[in-house]
Lab assay of single mutants.
Amino acid sequence: VTTYKLVINGKTLKGETTTKAVDAETSEKAFKQYANDNGVDGVWTYDDATKTFTVTEMV
């Protein structure tokens, strides 16, 4: 189990959250659901070296 981080650069929501998951794909699903639940829709990137997802909304 690995800890993954999500950085949110939204128009109205900014911040970070973490989750523990067995792999990046599992954490990505959880993070995308979290973003969707909070009305964040944007461009996703992933940095495997830091286990960090970033979602950026276009303004």
Rank of each mutant, 00 (worst) to 15 (best):
K32Y: 05
K5D: 02
S27D: 01
V1L: 15
G15E: 11
A24S: 09
T2A: 10
G39D: 07
K14A: 07
G10I: 12
A35G: 02
V7R: 06
V7N: 04
M58Y: 14
Y46E: 00
G39Q: 08
F53S: 00
F31E: 00
T50N: 08
Y46I: 00
T26G: 06
N9Q: 10
K5M: 07
M58K: 11
V55K: 01
G42A: 02
V55A: 02
D47S: 05
D47G: 01
E25M: 12
T45V: 08
K32S: 03
T12P: 04
N9M: 13
Y34E: 01
F53A: 01
T52N: 00
T56Q: 06
T54R: 05
W44G: 00
N9T: 06
Y34V: 04
K11Y: 11
F53Y: 07
G39F: 06
D37W: 06
V55S: 00
I8H: 02
G42D: 01
T17F: 15
G42E: 01
K11T: 12
G42T: 02
K29I: 11
K5G: 02
L6T: 02
I8S: 01
E25P: 09
T3E: 13
A30T: 14
V40W: 08
G42M: 03
A30M: 14
K29L: 11
K14G: 05
S27G: 12
T50A: 06
T2M: 11
D48I: 08
W44P: 00
G10P: 02
A35C: 15
Y4M: 00
E28G: 09
A24M: 13
G10W: 06
T52E: 03
S27F: 03
D47K: 03
K51P: 00
G39S: 06
V22F: 12
E28Y: 15
V43N: 07
T18L: 09
A49F: 10
I8A: 02
K11D: 06
T17W: 15
V59S: 13
Y46T: 00
E25T: 10
V55C: 06
L6I: 03
I8L: 08
Y4F: 11
K32C: 05
I8G: 00
T52R: 02
M58E: 12
T52L: 03
D41G: 08
T19D: 05
T54S: 05
L6W: 03
E16G: 09
D23C: 05
K20I: 14
A30N: 08
T45L: 06
D37F: 08
G39H: 09
V22R: 11
D41E: 13
E16Q: 10
D41F: 15
T17A: 11
T45S: 11
V59R: 10
T50K: 06
T54N: 04
T12F: 14
A30S: 08
Y46K: 01
G10F: 11
D41Y: 14
T12V: 11
T45Q: 08
T56D: 09
N9A: 08
T52V: 05
V43Q: 08
S27R: 01
G42F: 03
W44E: 00
K5W: 11
K20D: 14
G42I: 03
T26W: 06
K32N: 03
D37G: 05
D23T: 06
A30C: 14
N9E: 09
V59T: 13
Q33E: 09
D37L: 11
K51T: 03
E28I: 10
D41T: 14
G10Q: 05
K20M: 14
V40D: 01
G39Y: 05
F53L: 01
V22Y: 12
A35R: 02
W44T: 00
S27T: 05
N9W: 13
E25G: 09
V59W: 13
N38E: 06
F31T: 01
E16C: 15
V22D: 06
T18E: 10
V1K: 11
K5F: 13
V40Q: 02
D37C: 10
Y46D: 00
G39V: 03
L13N: 07
K5N: 05
V59D: 14
E16A: 08
A49S: 12
D47H: 05
D23F: 04
M58G: 10
T18W: 15
T50Q: 05
N36D: 11
E25S: 11
N36A: 15
M58N: 11
L13Y: 15
A49I: 10
K14V: 10
M58S: 11
T2Q: 13
E25Q: 13
Y46F: 06
E16M: 12
K20Y: 12
W44I: 02
F53M: 01
T54K: 04
T54V: 06
T12L: 11
T18R: 06
T12S: 10
A21S: 09
K29S: 07
D41W: 13
L13G: 08
K11I: 14
Q33R: 11
Y34D: 01
Y4A: 02
K32R: 15
A49H: 09
S27W: 04
T18G: 04
N36W: 14
L13M: 12
W44K: 01
L13V: 12
W44N: 00
N36K: 15
A21V: 03
T45N: 07
T2Y: 14
V7M: 07
K32T: 04
K5T: 14
V22I: 13
K29P: 01
A49E: 12
N38S: 08
D47R: 02
A30W: 15
Y4D: 02
V43G: 03
E25F: 12
V7Q: 05
E25A: 14
N36S: 14
V55W: 01
K5I: 11
V59C: 13
Y34F: 12
T26D: 07
V59Y: 13
T2N: 11
T26Y: 05
E25V: 12
D41P: 03
A21H: 04
T17Y: 15
T54H: 06
K29T: 07
D48G: 07
I8V: 07
K51V: 03
K29Q: 09
E28L: 15
E16D: 06
A35N: 03
T18P: 02
E16P: 04
T45Y: 08
D48Y: 07
L6Y: 02
G10E: 02
D23Y: 04
D47Y: 03
D48F: 08
A21Q: 08
F53G: 00
G15Y: 15
F31H: 00
T19S: 07
T2R: 10
T56S: 08
T19A: 09
F31D: 00
E28Q: 11
T26C: 06
T56G: 03
E16V: 14
A30L: 15
T2F: 14
E25D: 09
M58Q: 11
T56Y: 08
W44L: 02
Y4V: 03
A35H: 02
K11Q: 11
T54F: 10
K32L: 07
Y4R: 02
V59M: 12
A49W: 08
D37E: 13
V40A: 03
A30R: 14
G39P: 01
K29F: 08
K11W: 10
T18Q: 09
D47Q: 04
E16N: 08
A30Q: 12
G42S: 01
N9K: 11
E57D: 08
D37H: 08
G42W: 06
F53E: 00
D23R: 04
L6S: 02
L13S: 07
V55Y: 02
T3M: 11
D37S: 09
V40E: 01
G42P: 00
N36R: 15
K14Q: 11
T50G: 03
T50F: 04
K11F: 13
V43Y: 11
K29H: 08
E57P: 07
E57N: 05
N9I: 14
G15R: 13
M58F: 13
A35I: 08
N9F: 13
W44A: 01
K5H: 12
D23N: 11
K14I: 09
V7Y: 08
I8R: 00
E28N: 05
E16W: 14
K5L: 07
T26V: 07
Q33D: 07
K11N: 10
L13E: 05
N38G: 04
E57K: 03
T12M: 10
W44Q: 00
V40I: 15
N38D: 02
T12C: 15
E57V: 10
K14E: 05
S27N: 01
F31G: 00
M58I: 14
T45A: 08
V7I: 14
D48V: 09
N9G: 04
T12H: 14
T56C: 06
K5A: 04
V22S: 10
T17R: 13
F31A: 01
T3P: 04
L6D: 02
N38L: 15
V1P: 10
